[in-house]
Amino acid sequence: MVTAVTNFGRSGLYDWLVQRVSGVVLLAYFIFIGAVVVANPDMSYQEWRTTFEPTWVRVFSVAALLSLAAHAWIGLWCTLTDYVTPRMMGAKANLLRGVLTCVCAVALFTYVVWGISIIWGS
């Protein structure tokens, strides 16, 4: 049996809301980065670095990283609990899903820490 207690907000409504808000943040961030890249086709290193210098860009970047972690976690949780289940894959499915969930959690945590160190460390 797959229960709701292992999801992000322990409530479907809360997960639904977080998925929307984080999705909009990510959309805004990728449009921003896309616009910077398209508007400056032959950018130098200094120009690119200057783009990430203002505090608001760094804050926006961290917001995007945290949104990515929440958004991907909710999406992957939904996908795993729909397809990696005993009904779909047999008795080993719960163990496999637990392992895959851990892999996702470690990867997303790594993305957040790695990303913050890039944005604030350089």
Binding site: L76, C104, Y111, W114
Partner: peptide, 16 residues
């Protein structure tokens, strides 16, 4: 979405 989860490693690597 699942693909993008993996692809983010490439994008963050490129950003780095």
């Amino acid at each position: 979405g699942v693909f993008l989860f993996v692809a983010m490693a490439v994008l963050i690597y490129a950003l780095d």
